[in-house]
């Protein structure tokens, strides 16, 4: 076997692994969401298909695949079909740089955080395309709202992550985790870091268009929002991408604020592969937090949403960066 073939094979394998993670995580998160929702509402939730209803979403997925693909005649066909590619590809690419554990990272790029911010902002193009090309008023309004919301909150995501970059001095995710061996960043940076984390979670939730920031698909006003005209498998892509994005936001949060795959106080440092569990565990805690939000807060109006971002989060963030800079300059970092 020549080297080239081996390389290609390795790539294919990596791609397959990630696609596996992608779909499994997506499916599992959907189920989780429903179970959590049920839990909050004192119901049982899906429990019929498979043990404990674990195969419920699998069944849903199969159903979606076999559904007829309808679409409007008035749509801009090319863009209409292009939109799902955007959302899926960006979600997948963001996944590429996440460090699951030491060495388990497809692409350890030196501008990791920057890459994540950049890629995640491409996703909104898919949504806008989908909404616009559908030639449906609900879809268009939903897409426009999604656009204004995503771009607004992207600022806060970026700035809150930058606040932490001040502590690490690098953008590379593996090095960021390396720095945290001396203490998770949320501990190292204490007060400003906690503020940054809060901002990050709020704006992360908003960027994924999840409740309470889901005017994008506010069922009561817009039908299904930007993907009103999508059916069957094409709808499934948007659905899937939303959950993957949630996972990614949580994973970034876990990596940057909570040390990624590092165990608390390095208790399992000798067994690297356990890192995966730490990583996933932290991520799921954050995901649970986001789901918790969904069932706790009422949906915001557009103006409230923009006010929150531009008049509160952004100024706080700007100040917070300066505070963090002062903390770093005066070396007030806490570590263990």
């Amino acid at each position: 076997m020549s080297e080239g073939t081996a390389n290609i094979l390795a790539m294919v394998i990596v791609a397959l692994i990630y696609l596996g993670i992608f779909s499994v995580a997506g499916l599992f998160l959907v189920l989780l969401e429903r179970r959590v929702a049920a839990w909050f509402q004192l119901r049982i939730g899906p429990n019929r298909v498979g043990p404990l209803g674990l195969l419920q979403t699998m069944a849903d997925a199969l159903k979606l695949v076999s559904k007829e693909l309808t679409g409007t005649v008035k749509a801009d066909k090319f863009l209409y079909n292009l939109a799902p590619y955007f959302v899926i590809v960006t979600a997948l690419m963001a996944l590429a740089v996440l460090p699951f554990t030491q060495g388990f990272q497809a692409f350890d790029v030196n501008i990791g955080i920057f890459f994540l911010i950049a890629v995640s902002s491409i996703g909104v193009i898919g949504i806008l395309l989908g909404g616009w090309s559908s030639n449906n008023k609900f879809a268009l309004i939903g897409a426009m709202r999604s656009g204004v919301q995503t771009i607004s909150y992207e600022l806060s995501v970026g700035l809150s992550l930058l606040t932490m970059i001040l502590l690490t001095g690098t953008l590379q995710l593996s090095e960021i985790i390396e720095v945290q061996k001396g203490g998770w960043l949320i501990v190292q940076g204490h007060i400003p870091a906690i503020i940054a984390f809060m901002i990050f979670m709020i704006s992360g939730t908003a960027e994924t268009n999840r409740a309470p920031f889901d005017m994008v698909e506010a069922e009561s006003e817009l039908g299904a929002g930007f993907h009103t005209e999508y059916s069957g498998m094409k709808f499934a892509y948007f659905f899937l991408a939303e959950f993957i994005n949630m996972f990614i936001i949580a994973a970034i949060g876990a990596t940057v604020f909570f040390g990624g795959w590092l165990s608390p106080f390095g208790i399992t440092e000798s067994i690297p592969w356990l890192g995966v569990f730490w990583f996933l565990g932290k991520t799921f805690v954050l995901i649970f937090l986001m789901m918790w939000f969904r069932w706790t807060f009422p949906r915001l109006r557009v103006d409230q949403l923009l006010t929150l971002e531009w008049k509160y989060l952004l100024p706080i963030n700007l100040v917070n960066i300066v505070v963090m800079a002062i903390v770093v300059w005066l070396n007030l970092i806490i570590s263990w």
């Binding site: 791609a15 990630y18 979606l64 695949v65 007829e68 960006t90 497809a106 692409f107 498998m233």
Partner: peptide, 27 residues
Amino acid sequence: SEAIIVFLIAGIVLVAGANFLSNLISP
């Protein structure tokens, strides 16, 4: 860096493949 390309292709293949599958079996 080729990971970017790989993931790009993987994403496209995923969508295209699923679309194809769906077209195949959907009424």
